[in-house]
Design a protein around this nucleic acid. Structure first.
Lengths: 120, 120, 120, 120
DNA sequence: TTTT
DNA sequence: TTTT
């Protein structure tokens, strides 16, 4: 079982961190990813992909990104469903993001420049 | 701009090819992908991911797969919207699939064993 | 900057954990990945991809896999170089693996069935 | 069997198309991908990943990119071996690229803005 | 043999 | 509800 998503695109809005009831940071954002080809009518299209970012990555995204920022996003597709006010079942598909790369930043000011262990 | 999805999971139903108005084959399927970890309540969860397969891959999937078949799927996330009967805008997120790997087949009977050019 | 690799293939040997000087577990393995198409001569080819697995994933791989096991592998391509005995520079490209999925195991006995937090 | 690589990084040199004996265009390039974290010594590292691009993508890469261009690369890891002048077997691991995205170009002048069919 |  |  494999479930892996890689996106590079731009934030449609300024991001904002929220917290779960038990205090975990998260952030909802939509990534605009332009398709590489025009459609049959010659129109350049864009996918607007709904993402939830978790934990430290959520905090860093809020700190380093704004509307229009170019980001790389690594995550998984998740599905869930709920009932709306009329009792109708709504199915939601979204990307749960574990890693965000800040792609218009230079390397030196990236928020994720933290120590890791070396390969021996 | 990058938009790439890799899934390995099982078909929830027997697949069935359909054709667009202008004759292009396609196939809708849902892939069940078990999550690798249990949730906080100790429950093993599954994502049910809605996919559309195109062209020759659609025909091969119908030919070689059935409910329960293990497949690898390469594609992109696409979003679209339409208005339901009450005029409410519905937003849909799905995976548009360009390649399917048949993973419970042995190599010798794979439907995709066609010639390609060699690396010089 | 994005660097992401997804492989599904089989171990060419029984895996064996080793430890770095400072005690970190790691494991070297080669994954055989059959190409989906035959080459111009009609021959079915296979790529033998050298991987290094780290930490807990290394220990689990040794515990749950053997020669021939089907695994999914998530990681990054890494390059390094060293000088051989004759002082010639050797360039090495390998996959540094952070996650291994055990794909011939049923879900119930997967080694990675550990608790995670739920999505709110 | 799955073999998928996604990279975003910069060309280390001006690219140049070559042709196989039977006339197929190809192009060798090295992509510099900066690692997101510093190593234990506090040094920011980079992987230099050797790639071969094929066909139309090779021609477009030569046309639209130069040393330092930011590209997204989709492909597979391939391995091969040959004997050097002293009869020693040399093992090579490289990325065979099927798609290149030109990431410092604006959408309007991308070389890959060609028609595709629409989703019905 | 290495890019910003 | 959409970005360059």
């Amino acid at each position: 079982m494999i479930n892996q998503v890689t996106l590079v695109g731009r934030l449609t809005k300024d991001p904002e961190v929220k917290y779960t009831a038990d205090g975990r940071p998260f952030l909802n954002m939509t990534i605009a990813v332009n398709r590489p080809y025009r459609n049959q009518q010659g129109v350049a299209e864009t996918d607007f992909i709904y993402c939830t970012v978790w934990n430290k990555s959520a905090e860093n995204t809020a700190k380093y990104c704004q509307k229009g920022s170019l980001v790389g996003v690594l995550g998984t597709i998740q599905t869930r469903n709920y009932e709306d006010k009329e009792g109708k079942k709504i199915y939601v598909t979204e990307v749960s993001v574990h890693t965000v790369r800040f792609m218009d930043k230079k390397r030196s000011d990236s928020s994720e420049l933290l120590p890791i262990l070396t390969i021996p």
